[in-house]
Design a protein around this nucleic acid. Structure first.
Lengths: 125, 125
DNA sequence: TTCTTAATGATAGAAGATTATCAATAATGT
DNA sequence: ACATTATTGATAATCTTCTATCATTAAGAA
């Protein structure tokens, strides 16, 4: 049966305490602080199984970068910084999209992706 | 100086007559109908230079698939079919996003990505 | 504590997308 | 028509991301 390893705990804690979605590399770097010997393959493996278990959500955003967040978060959208590539949460969603869909199409999900510069990147230079 | 080749003309015509954004493979397949000997490298090269010239826009959508459309089209959004992976245009955009952005952030662009099943894929099976 | 085996870490390998190479071709200036 | 050279087509090479392999480690049951 499944084991509760140091590595899995570290990865989960990183994502539980993050206040924005994280890339694999970010998860890896942060998990290393709790678990020095952790390998990148372990991060990939655990993120995959945690998504299968429904505990995490993977967001496949434009730019090719995948980011991860806990799945129990409320419905929200994202702001992607063109400078540092970090992804931030935007809590509001007030749009009724059903009406935009062409006749005969069925809508399963929607994602609003806002992009620009975050506070840090817009102030420097 | 730049030459107006058969290949470039074929690629442009394909995208000008398309009524939805096309993937590289789709552009390649359609361009071959006008220009049998065209190679995939030529498609890559021309799409790249046409984007640099501002005539095309590349949309980097979730799933890793890149699609291309003429850049002079009016502001609109996209519906991505989870079945056939085709991307369709959705003409409406009525949302004021500026108000959603956190303090200190600057918004450069927004993209609404709707996904589900297109007419064809939602009727079969 | 001992045993079983799930999980790990390091790295080789696979897979997919894009780019580089280079001889051959064809678009333009003359 | 000819010469020049930008562009092409075929394919090898690169790059990046993720997965497979496998000996080793350690979580949990007894």
């Amino acid at each position: 049966m499944a084991r509760n390893t140091q590595q899995k705990r570290a990865i989960l804690e990183v994502l539980e305490t993050a206040e924005r979605p994280l890339s694999i590399e970010e998860v890896y770097a942060l998990a290393q602080k709790q678990c020095q010997s952790i390998g990148i393959a372990t991060v990939y493996r655990n993120l995959k199984t945690l998504i299968e278990d429904g505990r995490l959500k993977g967001l496949d955003l434009p730019g090719g970068s995948m980011v991860y967040e806990m799945s129990e978060k409320e419905h929200h959208h994202h702001f992607s910084c063109l400078g540092c590539k970090k992804v931030f949460d935007v809590d509001v969603c007030f749009v009724k999209f059903d009406k935009l869909i062409p006749e005969g199409f069925s809508l399963h999900q929607h994602e609003i992706l806002l992009s620009g510069l975050c506070k840090t990147c817009s102030t420097k230079d």
